[in-house]
Amino acid sequence: MALLEVRDLKMYYKTLRGHVKAVDSVSFDIERGKALGIAGESGCGKTSMAVTVLRLLPSNGKIHGGSVKLDGVDIVKLDDEEFRKSIRWKKISMVFQGAMNALNPVHRVGDQIVEAILAHEDVSHQEAVTRAEELLDMVGINPKRYKEYPHEFSGGMKQRVVIAMALACNPDVIIADEPTTALDVMVQSQVLKAMEDLRKRLDLSMILITHDLSVIAQTCDNIAIMYAGKIVEYGNVIDVFDHPTHPYGMGLVKSFPNIKAERTRVRSLPGFPPNLLAPPKGCRFHPRCPLAGDICMEEEPELIEIGSNSHKVACHKVDMLERGVDIWEQ
């Protein structure tokens, strides 16, 4: 059984002009020790999905159905107090986008980790300090720098501190939202390597949310591609990168520049994502899809398994695509 099973999760934001279906019937599994990458353009609902799993919703966001099973227990049904006490940070924790800039500049880095530990666990201050030093060591920072302030740390190190804080309570699942987006390539490489090592060592499951497909290719086992609040393609990274089958997934993968491959013209997907207040009827991708036919405008496609290895695609024209036609040939 998978460690985390998400089924038909729906989360809508209530706005003055109606519901924004930011997460609309999303399902996926994560095995223990595996990493799932969630890819998509800005506004596709990646971050909303993460905060829904952690139940850190803004006041206008509400779960409208579905289940999130952690070790077989549906944590959507837990009440808020219970969730806060036993799940958030303890079982599932999160590294927020830009969190490294949220470190308090007037407190010592180590003290901030200690505070995070004391907030969630019933341990003595001394134990917490010891644990904080261990965590710093774990993410590759010399524990002697415990007493330094955030401004004495570089961006990459601050990001590691944030990761260390997320690990403070020994969670089973860690959700990382764009953990390396603001970092330079070399630092990104260092941070991701540290995360990968940790994950292997602690047998952590990870959900990595990013728009950067190369990061997912590099660090994840599975990938889910989201478009307009829905998962449109899901599967093993090798399957998906080798044979992207959903028109959007294909466009995304093929438009990503690859420095090691032959030099080609950079591709792009014409158009832009729909407004989630009034998403298009049928398949949400149809206005941008070169294959769109009548059925795509009427019926919403199901996420169905193709081939083996649980590679799933939500597209009516999947037969055509399985033959490997490059529909974005420009």
Partner: peptide, 25 residues
């Protein structure tokens, strides 16, 4: 060389972290 080595490739078959330079700028 290090810069090119650090660039990730959208290709899961070429996994592996390239050698990056030690330290920070």
């Amino acid at each position: 060389r290090a810069l090119i080595g650090a660039v990730f490739v959208p290709d899961p078959k070429r996994k592996g972290f390239g050698k990056v330079l030690k330290g920070e700028v």
